[in-house]
Design a protein around this nucleic acid. Structure first.
Length: 679
DNA sequence: GGTAACTGGGTTTTT
DNA sequence: CCCAGTTACC
């Protein structure tokens, strides 16, 4: 395994003793190095099950574990790996009583958090008044809350730095957050932040800490630049003196500040561990030098962690900047180049269009459809955000955790004639936090209007039955059956939605318990329904459209980067703060370094600006500030020809057709009566 | 009193 | 497309 490594990689894989930071630039073989390090640690006599690998995505964990040992390896001989959240959940679930949690606690995702906040908003004076004072929306409240928790900062600091328009609501938000915390505890809910907080608390605990710490001899952390304050502390608590700690990362690729991550944690490692060894990986096996020259030019350098990539694959072709008259031209130019590459033998799936925001590809998607170019889109709206999927998850949560009133609320409201007020009344009557809520159903049903009562009772009855079933598969089938009628009544396209849910139920049935299935879905949501059924159409060839965030860690032979104008790249949301702008630059660096062979950059002059008034939505965009003169010197530039109108200009619309239309209902006129017999 | 149906204005990124 | 506000119906 070590034979295939270069000298730096081998030094990293075989580093002995104290804490190690591997500063791994994009495409420098980081995964292979980590896998080799795990193998070397085992060769040093460390049990695989005493090696912990922490990643940020499940995919990264699976990739590495798959390369670390053959698939048939027994559990005891496997490295322990997963995302921070998944590992935290495993520990908390195994020790629920010690954490004073009900054994079947619900893990709620950020949209559930927003729903809870929504129900608590009114009581804290955060309801919008007609007087025009705009209050932060539920999702914004949830973001602010999470930012406080994950950065360990006081509410006032977070508001001042990132949500200045919410400063007037500081007191109301503080009240809301207190209510939110006690609400979660009352109803057995655990959010993503809680998973990390609970793990950290256990590690810091005088009695639990030492035994949790002693589970592992070596801890490997991937993408360390993306840890938040809580995760950084978890790592320090796992390896207090740094022995056996390996962190891999690149602070120039930190792109998750919006969820509380901060590359300062990576930069602070050397201050925290005096004996930290830093090994740089800068030999790039992914891209041609022409691409890397641009990447090196735009890479933000930080003191002490400078790095420049050098290509192992030859020089290649310089990136091309295509200046386009407008967005429509840009869409056509992308299609043309995608097709050109395709004809030159590059499959669609070897090409990707990477966008800053999911809606940046709207126009392109129309053009792709018109030309019959198949594509899949990653990032943006997730499968679990679809209304019917949320319905299913809510029903499943009612079954596993009957005290989860959010789930009750959603399922009750699914029925015709049940609105927020009735749903709340029913939930109160049921006293769902007390045991046997399902048993009190007849009492609650009496308060419902006669026309909805039978349907709701039917649904609740079936879910009660599901709660009594042992096997996960039976449970999933019963839940599905319970939802069939309400969904059919609610959604016009119920058949399609139900088919989605059948797949979801199948996937859930494979889990050891419904609880585990739900956690899996929350922490690692499938991107689409087809995701659940594995990859059914491997032989099909699709162009990839992805957000830059979702593209992290991936690569394609041909990469297209549209919308390189200020306001889109960098996003206008980030322009107000220096920190925001730095992150946008790192995002651009990540995007550029995804390309193996060919990189196309597109800058439309005119861009659609939804933040402007309706009549003024088109403004002239400036080329992104990230392509300064030095960076531009690394690119070929070309100007796309605007499309010439196919027709000569005509008379105004009114003159062409309006007179004709008037003749259909206007007073009869001489010529009209001639052409219409009997008129 | 409570629900559903309609309307108008706004939309970053995601474990 | 989602949310909040309004109106129309039971």
């Amino acid at each position: 395994m070590l034979d295939r490594l270069n000298a730096d990689q081998r030094r990293a894989a075989t580093h002995q003793g104290g804490p190690l930071l591997i500063l791994a630039g994009a495409g420098t073989g980081k995964t292979g190095t980590l896998v080799a390090r795990a193998a070397w640690l085992r060769a040093q006599g460390i049990q695989p099950s005493r090696i912990l690998l922490l990643t940020f995505t499940r995919r990264a964990a699976d990739d590495m574990l798959a390369r670390a040992h053959p698939p048939d390896t027994a559990a005891a001989d496997r490295i322990v790996g997963g995302t921070f959240h998944a590992v935290a959940h495993r520990i908390i679930r195994a020790n629920a009583e010690a954490f004073a949690l009900p054994p079947e606690f619900s893990v709620i995702d950020p949209s559930d958090v927003a729903d809870v906040m929504d129900t608590l908003r009114d009581a804290n004076g955060l309801v919008a008044t007609s007087a025009g004072r705009r209050t932060p929306r539920a999702a914004t409240c949830a973001d602010i809350y999470s930012r406080c928790v994950s950065t360990g900062s006081h509410l006032d600091e977070v508001l001042a730095a990132d949500y200045p328009w919410c400063v007037p609501f500081a007191a109301a938000l503080a009240g809301l957050f207190s209510d939110f915390v006690s609400y979660k505890r009352r109803h057995g809910l655990v959010d993503f932040d809680d998973l990390l907080l609970l793990w950290r608390a256990a590690l810091a605990d005088a009695r639990a800490g030492p035994s949790l710490r002693s589970l592992f001899d070596a801890v490997l952390v991937d993408e360390y630049q993306d840890v938040n304050a809580v995760q950084a502390e978890i790592v320090r608590l796992l390896r207090p003196d740094g022995a056996g700690l390996t962190c891999v990362g690149d602070d120039a690729q930190a792109i998750y500040a919006f969820r509380g991550a901060d590359p300062l944690h990576l930069r602070a490692l050397s201050g925290y561990f005096a004996d930290l060894a830093v090994i740089r990986l800068s030999r790039n096996y992914r891209s041609h030098q022409a691409v890397l020259s641009l990447a090196n030019e735009i890479r933000p350098q930080s003191a002490g962690l400078e790095l420049a990539l050098t290509a192992e694959r030859g020089h290649g072709q310089r990136p091309t900047l295509v200046r386009c008259h407008d967005e429509a031209t840009q869409a056509r130019e992308i299609c043309a180049r995608v097709l050109d590459s395709h004809e030159a033998g590059v499959q669609f799936q070897q090409q990707a269009v990477l966008v800053r925001a999911a809606h940046h590809s709207d126009l392109l998607e129309i053009e792709l459809s018109a030309r019959g170019i198949p594509y899949v889109k990653y990032g943006g709206l997730r499968f679990t955000e679809a209304a019917h999927v949320k319905d299913f998850l809510a029903a499943a949560r009612m079954v596993t955790n009957p005290a989860d009133d959010l789930a009750w609320f959603r399922i009750l409201r699914l029925h015709e004639g049940i609105g927020p007020v009735l749903a709340r009344r029913v939930i109160e009557t049921l006293r769902i936090a007390d045991p046997d809520a399902f048993g009190r159903w007849p009492e609650a049903a009496a308060a419902l209007p006669p026309r909805s009562s039978p349907a709701v009772s039917n649904t609740v009855g079936q879910l009660a039955a599901a709660a009594g079933q042992e096997r996960t598969a039976d449970c999933a089938v019963t839940i599905l059956a319970a939802l069939r009628e309400p969904l059919a009544a609610r959604y016009a396209d119920a058949a399609v939605r139900f088919a989605d849910l059948e797949r979801l139920a199948d996937a859930a049935a494979a889990s050891p318990s419904l609880h585990d299935a739900l956690v899996q879905l929350a922490l690692d949501p499938p991107v689409s329904a087809s995701d659940l059924a594995g990859r059914p159409r491997l032989d099909d060839d699709y162009l990839v459209i992805s957000t830059v965030h979702s593209a992290k860690g991936l690569e394609w032979p041909v990469v297209h980067l549209p919308q390189l104008v200020d306001g889109a790249v960098p996003s206008d949301m980030a322009l107000t703060t220096a920190a925001g702008l730095e992150e946008e630059q790192r995002l651009f660096y990540v995007a550029v370094t995804r390309a193996r062979d060919t990189l196309y950059l597109y800058a439309p002059l005119r861009m659609h600006h939804h933040r402007l008034a309706r009549d003024d939505r088109h403004s002239y965009g400036q080329l992104t500030r990230f392509l300064g003169p030095a960076a531009l010197a690394q690119c070929e530039q070309t100007q796309a020809a605007p499309r010439r109108p196919a027709l000569a200009p005509m008379a105004p619309l009114a003159a062409v057709v309006d007179g004709e239309l008037q003749s259909l209902w206007g007073p009869p006129i001489a010529t009209a009566s001639q052409s219409r017999p009997g008129g």
